[in-house]
Amino acid sequence: MAETMLKVEGINVYYGKIHALKDVSFEVNTGEIVALIGANGAGKSTTLKTVSGMMHPKSGSIHFMGEDITHTESYRLLPKGLAHVPEGRRVFLQMTVQENLEMGAYIQKKISDEDLENVYKHFPRLKERRKQIAGTLSGGEQQMLAMGRAMMSHPRIVMLDEPSMGLAPILVDQIFDIVRELHAAGTTVLLVEQNASKALALADRAYVLETGRITLAGTGAELMSSEQVKKAYLGG
């Protein structure tokens, strides 16, 4: 029986008066790939932001490795092993590729060449462009950089927010391959995706978010064959 790494219980999150997350509960066990799927505006990104402390819930609780992190400040979470690759990648556009990776290792005392080489091994394109300003990279390269940056701190769990957004199909496959490799290397993954078929194919378990509520939960395969999911997210 795998232990629970991340446990979210009944969180309610607001943007001003808008009730964005309603009693959302889910958990991620050590070693799993868990997907959160749902339409635009369902609250997927808000969920990740709340877990990583960029937002805080009005009620409910979040535990990571048994510790209550409901109100922990964002910057204290990476040292605990929780990495978040946010929506829109958010790489530092005015810094070089290598500097971005160094920022990923900010919590380390020293930036190890081994870690840098490891990222470059996964993303040879980044090595070619390591002295380039990140703002000059293509969308796919920026996504790679954002993921590589998250790898630099050796997180226990990495939360990926729409890693395939806006990418060409061939790049989408590459990004999903990397997620698979990350997972094979021992990282737990919480994946938010609009590309439901790909996400469900990859995930051990998944949750469906609809207008701020979790409406369905199950294994990737179960959800993939669910009529409701098929209709709403897999194009019939």
């Binding site: 990583s52 402390g53 960029m54 400040e73 964002s74 910057y75 204290r76 979470l77 990476l78 040292p79 990495a83 978040h84 946010p86 958010r90 790489v91 530092f92 556009l93 005015q94 810094m95 920022m103 990923g104 900010y106 919590i107 940056r149 701190s153």
Partner: peptide
């Protein structure tokens, strides 16, 4: 450049 992303870096 980006406070939120910087916080995510620790």
């Amino acid at each position: 450049e980006d406070k939120g992303a910087a916080e995510l870096m620790g």
